[in-house]
Write a protein that binds this DNA or RNA. Sequence first.
DNA 1: TATCGATATGTCGCAATGCCACATATGAAA
DNA 2: TTTCATATGTGGCATTGCGACATATCGATA
Lengths: 109, 109
Amino acid sequence: MDRQLKKGSTELLVLSLVERRARHGYEIAKLIESRSEGALRFHVASLYPLLYRLEARGLLEGRWVERPGQRRRRYYKLTTEGRKALRLQQSAWAAFVEAMHRITQAEHA
Amino acid sequence: MDRQLKKGSTELLVLSLVERRARHGYEIAKLIESRSEGALRFHVASLYPLLYRLEARGLLEGRWVERPGQRRRRYYKLTTEGRKALRLQQSAWAAFVEAMHRITQAEHA
DNA sequence: TATCGATATGTCGCAATGCCACATATGAAA
DNA sequence: TTTCATATGTGGCATTGCGACATATCGATA
């Protein structure tokens, strides 16, 4: 998988994964890997900074959860802002894929 | 359109556009804009360096063409290497879109 | 008991790549 | 003669994912 392809789409990926419920970083990384059946991998090291950025921009809200018998986790959930951003990014992604298709297929025909 | 989405996919776009015939930089930029109906724009300033890189990597072969009544143009055509790279990038792109779909839709369901 | 792997979060420097501003040059149209 | 479309080019900047490394806990296994 071309590394560069991921640029920019990761945000949509993360926002999508916390749409229905709060998740923590490690969980998000594992979900990306398993649901894409290995096609998409994502270094956790890249993920944490992204989560901070999303929180700083007010799209996510994080909260520490400590339970006996496990390391502390930081759960992130979508804010109202984040939900709006998710909608926007969903349609931007769809438009982008469609445009790519139009250009590459026009040539292929 | 999110700027970051383009990262990495531009190469596929350019390779696709010279698949059937040689084209020059300005023409490629215009084609991207018109065929995507404005959804994808691409600064020519970003395009030229990309073309040099593709040529340096042996995927494209450039050739100056001078005709009276127009500025000199550099036409790029696919090399054999480039054709191989195009096939690879086409399947990588398809896999990527498919993986994105699986992850974002699984959540949406 | 010692060690190793999975879980969980974090920092730092690096590389890749598109953006923007700016520059140069020609031909056609206003 | 000024302006626009064509055509190529350079340099600095910002964003963002990678890789190496660090820390820490728990359960399994040797």
